[in-house]
Computed example of a mutant assay.
Amino acid sequence: MGRIEESVEIDAPIEVVYRAWTERESLPACMRGGADRGAAATEVVALDRIAWTGGADGQSGVVTFHRTGEAGELGTRVMLQLDTEPHGLWDHLVEGLGFTDRHVIDELAAFKAYVEENRPGLAA
């Protein structure tokens, strides 16, 4: 089993970031795949954490949301812990070479850009 731990700081209020994470359209692709394959939430604490397990790919994990900055500054740190279960030689090779980690980093960066550019859930 492999474990990936990554975080990203997003220049948006925690409410906006959490809402974006829970919307299927803006969810990072590495998370959407698990949901499409039968992963199920095991714990949901609004504005704090979401944990999931299962699915055909054996993926499980937890994402936590943390307010950052001083009073009056709006920011959120998203911390992701993803456990993967590689199957077969190809999956082990991909994970061993760090491609899975890189994919998660890229997806978190894309999520950050989406939230900061669109501010989903906020009136314009």
Results as ranks from 00 to 15, higher is better:
4 I>T: 11
97 L>N: 13
26 S>D: 04
13 P>E: 05
18 Y>L: 00
48 D>Q: 15
108 L>Y: 00
90 W>A: 13
10 I>D: 00
72 G>K: 10
116 E>A: 14
80 L>A: 03
8 V>T: 04
62 V>F: 05
62 V>S: 10
50 I>C: 05
90 W>K: 15
123 A>S: 14
104 V>M: 05
95 E>W: 10
54 G>L: 01
19 R>V: 07
88 G>V: 12
117 E>G: 07
76 T>K: 01
4 I>W: 03
107 E>T: 15
36 D>Q: 06
84 T>A: 09
14 I>G: 01
29 A>R: 14
11 D>P: 02
75 G>R: 03
86 P>V: 12
22 T>H: 07
72 G>L: 11
35 A>E: 09
12 A>T: 07
96 G>P: 10
84 T>K: 07
121 G>H: 06
27 L>T: 08
79 M>R: 12
66 H>K: 15
63 V>M: 12
80 L>D: 01
76 T>D: 03
94 V>S: 13
70 E>Q: 14
34 G>K: 00
7 S>I: 07
26 S>E: 11
84 T>C: 15
8 V>Q: 05
4 I>D: 02
70 E>P: 07
62 V>Q: 12
117 E>Y: 05
100 T>Y: 08
115 V>N: 00
28 P>H: 03
89 L>C: 04
27 L>I: 10
12 A>M: 04
40 A>K: 06
47 L>M: 09
70 E>C: 08
49 R>W: 07
63 V>S: 01
24 R>K: 13
43 E>L: 15
74 L>V: 15
119 R>P: 03
74 L>P: 09
73 E>H: 09
24 R>I: 06
60 S>N: 10
65 F>Q: 00
111 F>A: 03
65 F>R: 00
13 P>L: 07
31 M>Q: 07
11 D>F: 06
75 G>E: 02
1 M>C: 10
76 T>E: 02
86 P>H: 06
13 P>F: 04
56 A>N: 10
81 Q>L: 13
118 N>F: 10
64 T>H: 05
